[in-house]
Every structure is written in structure tokens, then in C-alpha cells.
Amino acid sequence: MANEDQVVAFKLRNEEYGFSILNVQEIKGLTDITRVPFAPEFIKGVINLRGSVLPVIDLKKRLGLEDTPYTANTRIVIVQYDEVAVGMLVDAVTEVRTINADDIDTSRTVTGNDSNSKFISGIGKVDDRLIIQLNLSEIIGLNGEE
């Protein structure tokens, strides 16, 4: 048990990604996103979550992936990290998976070395699928890189 981690797996284009379930607060259907002028490009806008205004990060843009149109499967995954709640715009949420820690490859050779590699904390292997584990603190970008 100790070596297992549950992840919320979701799709961006045709790749599968995951956040640790401990960071995921809830999953919401697509609602109106209000554009925020002058916001960093990867921030799609803000939404109203039960009276709180929450920023929504366009994950594809953040990871340098090409944009896709909204579909009926588009979801906003609300994650909580370091007291900050943020919505993540994803193409579809697939499932909650248990991944054995041994099955997660965190070596640099796997995560790559380009500018986007800092967003990836490892790659989990489940059956014959690969679930890319994301580094929330880098994605939210509170470390002052902007």
C-alpha cells in the first residue's frame, strides 16, 4: 500500500496525464470561463466556483501542446496546491488509477530535458498505457518564474 499512489488520469489530445488524487478537489463540467486581460497566456480565464473566483489554466497551452476545440468531454479539474485552488482545463477525465510507485519512472532520460520537462515529475506505466505525472508546483508557477 505504502508504495501506491492514486492518480486522477485525464487526456490532453491523445496523451494521458495524471495528478495525484490528493491534490484534486473536484471535477467540473465546462462552465463559462471569463477571459482575464493581461493574464499570462496559459491562463484561460476565471470561473465562479460556488462564489469563489478561480483561475483556470489551459493545460495544453501550458505544456506547449496544440489547441483542440471544446467537446462534451471537456472538463475542469479543480486542484488544490499549497493553499491555491486552480482549475485545469483538460480534454477528458478518464479514470482514477492506482499506480505502484515502482512503476513510475522519474529519470531525466524519460522526462526529457527541454523547457517543458520541468512540468513532468515522472511517467507511470499501467498495463500498456503511459500516464504522465505532472508537477503541480511548476504548472501553477507560483515560484516566481513569470
Binding site: 482575464v36 486581460p37 493581461f38 493574464a39 491562463i43 473566483v53 478561480l54 491555491v84 501553477i140
Partner: peptide, 12 residues
């Protein structure tokens, strides 16, 4: 407030 992530945006 717009929160930490969007703090300090001009005009808003």
C-alpha cells in the same frame, strides 16, 4: 480578489 496566481495584473 483574483488570487495569488493572478495578482498584480494592471488595470484590474
Amino acid at each position: 480578489t483574483l488570487g495569488k496566481l493572478l495578482s498584480g495584473l494592471k488595470m484590474l
